[in-house]
Structures are given as C-alpha cells and as structure tokens.
Design a binder for these strands. Sequence first.
DNA 1: AATATCTTTCAATATATATTGAAAGTTCAA
DNA 2: TTGAACTTTCAATATATATTGAAAGATATT
Lengths: 168, 168
Amino acid sequence: MRLNEAKSRFIQAWGTLGSKWGINRTMAQLHALLMVSPDAMSAEQMMEELNVSRGNVNMNIRELIDWGLVEKIHKPGDRKEYFRADKDIWKITKQVAKERKKRELEPIIKVLEQVSDVEGDKKDKNVKAFLESIQGIRRMANNADKTLDTMIKAEENWFFGGILKLFK
Amino acid sequence: MRLNEAKSRFIQAWGTLGSKWGINRTMAQLHALLMVSPDAMSAEQMMEELNVSRGNVNMNIRELIDWGLVEKIHKPGDRKEYFRADKDIWKITKQVAKERKKRELEPIIKVLEQVSDVEGDKKDKNVKAFLESIQGIRRMANNADKTLDTMIKAEENWFFGGILKLFK
DNA sequence: AATATCTTTCAATATATATTGAAAGTTCAA
DNA sequence: TTGAACTTTCAATATATATTGAAAGATATT
C-alpha cells in the first residue's frame, strides 16, 4: 500500500472510531492527521488534506488544543500558525483519560452522591432497588476514578510491561 | 430528595452521559430506568416513564438486548412482554467492554495492521513518522485488547485490587 | 375464522450536530 | 496608518441521527 492510501485509510478509520465515542469526526481526523505528520501543519494544509473548510479546521483544532492533544507552533519569520500533535500514544491516552474523567466521570459521581440521599421507607422495594443499584454504580465509579488517578500519574512502561505480568 | 425526583435525575444524567459516549439517549435512559426498577417493565410503562413513543422504546430495547444488557421476560398468564436489566454493575461493565471490543477495538486493529504495510522508502521522513505512529497505536490497541480479554473473565475485586496494587 | 391484544416496521418528521464561507477581527510590516 | 496576511466568528445551511405514530404483522383467545 502506498503512503497516501495508508494515511487516508487510517484517518478515515480514526474518524469513524471517534464518532462512535462521541467525538466530532473532523476533530478525530485532524488528530489522526497530525499524529502521523512529521511536521507541524498550517490550517491550509489541513483543509487541503481533509477537504474541509477553514472554519471547521479552526474550531476543531481549538477543541483539540482545549483537550490538550495539540499545540500551536510559531515558526520564526512566518506569520502563519502551525499545529502539532504529541505522538506518544501513552501520553495521549492519559490525556484523554484525564479530560474525560474531569468532564464526565466526576460530574456523574456528583449526581450519584446526590441521588443517594432518598427520603422515605427503606423497606419499600422501589426505594431499596434504587438505592442498591445506585450504590453499586457509585462503587464502580469511585473505583474507576481512583484507577484513572493512578493511571494518569503512571509511567509508560506500566501499560507496555507491568500489566501483562499481572494478567498472566 | 424523593424517590421519583432521584430516579428521574439519575435517568437524565445517565442519558446525558450516554450521549457523550456515542450511545443514543433513549437507549441509555431505558437502561437506567431498568437498572433501578425492582420489577421487569412493559413497553407501556417505559413509554410512560420516559415520555417516548412505542416505536422508540421498541427499537432501543431491541438494541439493549442486542448489547446483552436487557432480557425479555414472559409472565405466566400475560401476553405482554416485559423487560429487565441485570443490576450487577461489574457484569454490566464487562458486557459493555466485551461489545465495544468486538465492535470497535477489533476493527480498528485490523485497519492498523493493514496500513502498517507501506511500500516505499523507509528513510522518507513521512513514511517513517507514519509507521512509527501507527506502530505505537498498534501496541496500545493490542495491549488494550489483551487487558479487556482478561477483564471480561475477571472478578471485580481481583481486577481493581490487582490494578491498584500494581500502580502503587 | 373472526377478533382482540400485543409487537414490529418504517416513511415521514423533528431534532441535534456539523460544516460552510464570507465578513469581521487581529496583527504585523512597510 | 494603511493594507496585506492571517485568524476567528457565526448565521445560514447541510447532514446525520433520533423519534413518531399509524399501519402491518404476529399470536393467542373465543
């Protein structure tokens, strides 16, 4: 397979995967593009490669920066802005974990706490079933929270080394 | 907080969380509803609680069954179908992991394999950067795949206990 | 076999989300 | 301080996704 075909297949697949995980397709494609590009890219270059508008590139690159996955680069003697993505997949994974924890896990944990405080007859099977389920979900959420905390601090070779030993 | 308010807050929050993870809101809400309901529910009851149409309930319940999260129940002497969700959150988590692995992780691993086979000058920095990134992503994906395999078979305490201990 | 009860389907519609592109905004060099 | 080069914004539009509801399809009951 030629490089260009491989590249566009990967970008395509990454965009599709992103969609299934609630990530805007263009955002995922931009990320894929930058992950496999040796050099930082300008808005024009990205518009060209992905066939999307300037506004679309601008908004989604901003979102990627907000997620901590892309950074703005200034080349000396050039007014254009360039963008590059970190290529270390372990760092990327941790960064995504960190953001989703903050944006999604922590908020739901708060809701779970709030709804755990139900007044009324604890013998009522409706109350009982509700509280038992919520409690189970809370424990899982708190476990996930702690695990992510630790993962976010962990070294790369945890994932590429330690976990395999554990699961033998 | 009264049970009804707690229930609807939880259902609401679960639906919102689902959306952010690429899951249809009604599907997530139905799942939430069944998770906190002591008894199996009929389509009518669910339509009533969530204020959605019969068709919507039917399609999304079918999807939940397809994900292995809900089962159909027949009550003796009643022609109606009822539905119940497993309430064991560890089982639910494993089931979701199993399905997403099959539907999303395995397909992307195949694409990563395919695009790893790039012809051309391995000294070209474009080829080099592409292959290095893809290789990193592949290693991560394969690790995730193995980890999920193990998790799907594991007991809750062992999994979290083991991971947390390892991280220490 | 006619009827009542319940489920499924799917074209039409509504809603949510993504994308465009041109105008406004910004910055810099002359 | 002007204008060229570049970035940002956002109303309009397009696209994708979800939802409805009535008709068709099942299945049990009389």
